[in-house]
Design a protein around this nucleic acid. Sequence first.
RNA 1: GCCGAAGUGGCGGAACUGGUAGACGCGCCAGACUCAAAAUCUGGUAGUGGCAACACUGUGUGGGUUCGAGUCCCACCUUCGGCACCA
Length: 892
Amino acid sequence: MCYKTRVVNRPFLKIINSLISRPVMEPQYFPEKVEQDARAWWGKHRSFKAVADPRREKYYCLSMFPYPSGKLHMGHVRNYTIGDVLTRFMRMHGKNVLQPMGWDAFGLPAENAAMANGVPPAKWTYDNIAYMKKQLQSLGFAIDWEREIATCKPEYYKWNQWLFLRMLEKGIAYKKTGVVNWDPVDQTVLANEQVIDGRGWRTGALVEKREIPMYYLAITKYAEELLADLDKLPEWPERVRTMQANWIGKSVGVRFAFPYKLDGRDEKLWVFTTRADTIMGVTFCAVAAEHPLATHAAKNNPKLAAFVDECKRGSVMEADIATIEKKGMPTGISVTHPLTGEPIPVWVGNYVLMGYGEGAVMAVPAHDERDFHFAKQYGLSIKQVIAVEGEQFTTDNWTEWYADKERGRCVNSGKYDGLGYDAAVDAIAADLKAKGLGDKQVMWRLRDWGVSRQRYWGCPIPIIHCEACGDVPVPDKDLPVVLPEDCVPDGSGNPLNKRADFVNCQCPKCGQPARRETDTMDTFVDSSWYYARYASERGDSAMVDGETGYWMPVDQYIGGIEHAILHLLYSRFWWKVMRDTGLVRGDEPFARLLTQGMVLNEIFFRKPASGRIQYFNPAEVEVKLDDKGNRVGAVLMSDDQPVESGGIGTMSKSKNNGVDPQALIEQYGADTARLFMMFAAPPEDTLEWSDEGVAGANRFLRRLWKLVAEHVNAGLPGKADISNLPEPLKALRRLAHQTLAKVTDDIGRRRTFNTAIAAVMELVNALSRIEDGSPQAKAVRHEALEIVVVLLSPMVPHITHALWQALGHTQAIIDTSWPAVDTAALKQDSIEIVVQVNGKLRGRVAVPATAAEDEVRKLALADEGVARHVGDKPVKKVIVVPGKLVNIVVAG
RNA sequence: GCCGAAGUGGCGGAACUGGUAGACGCGCCAGACUCAAAAUCUGGUAGUGGCAACACUGUGUGGGUUCGAGUCCCACCUUCGGCACCA
């Protein structure tokens, strides 16, 4: 079938109307055609090109760039639709907008794909990028594609290397050993996700911890600023700032030592504690398996050596370590309590981490829950040194108050008895200092950022190892160190190690043959500054250029809540380093943050008597309902046999509950997909997938199209007098302008696109009910339809592009200004007041908008329903909330 | 285990500053159109009791503050996100 385009300018339309009776606007909505036309128009006019212009106010809207995993998933669609709505909204408010897009192109999945299919990660990645770019374009996002970047390209990662070298010079980047997961069979380092139940994912071998040399970035040097500057981010969600503050974890405590003699030498066991007030209650110390003291003690103690080995096995993940059974073994070594001089036994504990603080802790079983259980388990003594008035201490079981800093007072602590937390810590720290055995110290939970990865598909670390000169930085003129793109990882370690042409090189210092570093950088490095590169001209002469100063900081950053800590903290750190290197100005890269929720779908499965659980995609399952719409079961459509429900979960391959955006776009069009995504939930909440919901979104667009078509095909209205409207039309105009005000606030301030769309739907419903064909009605309807179309345009840009033209505009809607509310239209003579009796709704009264409180009270008391409930009981009190409600409080 | 969130009809959600609980959408029911179905349109739809008017109950659970609590406070339960090599 062939349909004439409905895009006609107004005078021409009038002529057509007068000549023939055939409709000029196609009454049915065909999304494919509409969307193609709109995209062609934007393309032809280069509508999305962003040009820095210091005379104009900028708005930099950034969505977290995708990992090119193969195809878009619904999380991407949601993320980028939110960004696009804000970008288009701000553009219509006159801002000079920038919305870029690119690819977080290095990472593990490319290597996994290579192992599965034998395709080089580079080819796999570039193919995925090409496909996903097409998908993004078909969604109609207002992206300036001229700024596209991919982090796996040398012109991008060259600057990772360049800034890394500057960090080396500043002492921010440095080398030390770190612990990794080691697969003894594949002889390779595993990522945490490649360790399943303590075993290598491919080999099934028990994973070991192994210490290897790695490069670290001293993010802890910026800890104080990273914490303090959270106050400069009032437009970030409170919960993200709290999570970051807790992650950085500043604590003021005391670092002190337990002296001891070892082989006749005087040694010190250093520990850190935030509870120095409990120091008199120390009954033992615990050290990590890797601690020198443990190593020493294990030398002549096979049982202890075996235990130390056991501790070294297993996961390096904190969540695992925190939940493992607490185990320990005595070393046989005793240290001396720095204040009492008593001997204190030292244990090895599997819950003490070498990487944290000193790798050793003091244990106060009476006032630390973990120590308490450990002491009970191994029969170690428990000594109460804190008391709370009115509470009874017992070693039988743990009680919350044992660790109470606020109410606790020192007891059994000699000269410190009676002191509260602050006074006790001060006094004890002073005494330790006097003995030269310790002092107060600020401690951070935050650890330095280990950036070395023993993997191929990443940015090479620009270091050359020379036998004579040691570790030599690659000179700037030799950057970038280019990663060969034809390697195919096979699971047995980094293929770069086998690439002689990559590894073999000359020492830049002495010219002798040397070995190139084969470790690559953590992909969090790539994503720590891409936002600044977009904003630059992306030339080869500098990491970022002057244009960055115009666009940065990002005005609105949007991404998943799962990035609330790591990515955002690393980016803030990297940006500060760039600032201190003189590359950029300003303390923070992201002025405002929106953390979008996950996209969920139902999970269906069958669990055969033997074998693995089989998951079914919800598209293949039919849900059975009873008369009232209650769910009674579900069957697989192909065999009509029941399947079990596994509840709701994040869309994932493993649960087979993903929905392909491509299929959705093909069936309904991009606008329907976008509308559903924005309507189904507020952006920060999780979003549950619903096929029926999508169909509903599409139904609304069809209804809107028809409404506009009927209006346009009846002939566009001329000028009509709207100063003296009959009440129903006045009400419609009022609703239109109320909706305009609400939607402007919902998108611009509240970011609740779901309520914005609901409000527009209400206006459309009201509009559908008006059947008046008078010129006045036509004019009011026309104005209301224009408002509807404009308000929806950030969400559904294609259909509104067409409808706007159909409504007689020659200027494209994307270039139109957001309309202003006509406050005169909002005026109301009479308002409804709710009347309560003892807090319960008992009636409603209409009162003049200008009524005084006394008058409102009188009218409320006169209401029939109210009078019935008040009866002859005495009125104790009347509360009047102007414009809203009256509450009458009566006795009894 | 630690840190951070969320829990409201059959379902997704609304209620923004403590002031009408359930907007809007989905689903379901009834009706119109149709030979029929789909699509579309109209109406109904928290629960219980009642012919109805209306009344009572109701925002995860248990307490509290208030004239008034989904919203504030305390305790608990469940689900989700992060925990440093997934991105």
